[in-house]
Computed example of a mutant assay.
Amino acid sequence: MTDREGVLTAIEKALGEVLEREITELTEDTRLFDDLRLDSSSVLELLLLVEDTTGIAVDPEDLDIEYLRTVRSFADYVEGLLARGGDGA
């Protein structure tokens, strides 16, 4: 998976699983904490699901809260990892 649409689809599906509901009207400007009400445990679950789906490996040392502000910032982060071969280290 290397295209933006694929990354966004993976994020949307993972969010649906984490929130246990269908996600409608998700945009790149959707805020993960403010709009979707994610908390630290749901973010961890989201990261694990996206790792499994995309093949990336998130390095907790590299993870900044700015990457998790919006769907766009998270998708940018995931794409950056994919561009580096999926390794977050």
Rank of each mutant, 00 (worst) to 15 (best):
L8C: 00
A14P: 07
D76G: 00
E20V: 06
R69P: 02
L82M: 11
D29Y: 02
F33K: 06
V43Y: 07
I56E: 04
R84H: 10
S41P: 05
S40C: 10
A14V: 04
A14Q: 03
D59K: 02
D87E: 12
E79V: 00
E45R: 15
G88Y: 01
L47V: 15
L63Q: 05
A75N: 11
K13S: 12
L26S: 03
E51Y: 09
R84G: 14
E79R: 12
S42M: 08
I65Y: 11
A14M: 02
T2P: 01
A14G: 03
L46T: 09
S41A: 14
A89R: 13
R84T: 12
L38V: 13
V71F: 03
L26R: 01
S40V: 12
L47K: 07
G80T: 08
L47S: 09
S73W: 00
R37E: 13
G86I: 11
L49W: 01
L38S: 05
S42F: 08
G85H: 05
A14T: 10
S73D: 10
D35A: 04
P60C: 10
E61M: 03
L49E: 13
D34T: 11
L47Y: 01
L38H: 07
S42P: 05
A75S: 14
T24V: 14
T70C: 09
A75G: 09
G86F: 04
S41K: 10
D34H: 11
S42C: 04
E5P: 01
E25Y: 06
T2Y: 02
L48P: 03
E17K: 14
T2W: 03
D35Y: 08
A57D: 14
A14E: 05
L48D: 10
T30A: 02
V43A: 10
V71P: 00
E66A: 12
A89S: 12
L8N: 08
G55Y: 12
S73A: 04
R21T: 11
T24A: 12
S41M: 15
P60Q: 08
G85V: 06
E61A: 14
E22L: 07
T54V: 12
A10H: 01
I11E: 07
A57Y: 13
I11W: 02
L48K: 08
T30Q: 00
S40Y: 10
D59F: 04
A83K: 11
L44F: 15
L19D: 00
L48M: 15
D35F: 06
F33N: 04
I56S: 07
L38F: 02
I56K: 05
E51Q: 15
V18P: 01
D35P: 07
R37Y: 05
L48S: 15
V7T: 11
L47T: 13
V50C: 06
G55F: 13
T53V: 14
R72K: 13
I23R: 03
R4V: 06
R72M: 06
D29A: 15
R84M: 10
L63A: 09
L36P: 10
D59C: 07
E79A: 12
A57T: 15
E20I: 08
D29K: 08
V71Q: 01
I11T: 06
R69A: 09
L36D: 13
V78A: 05
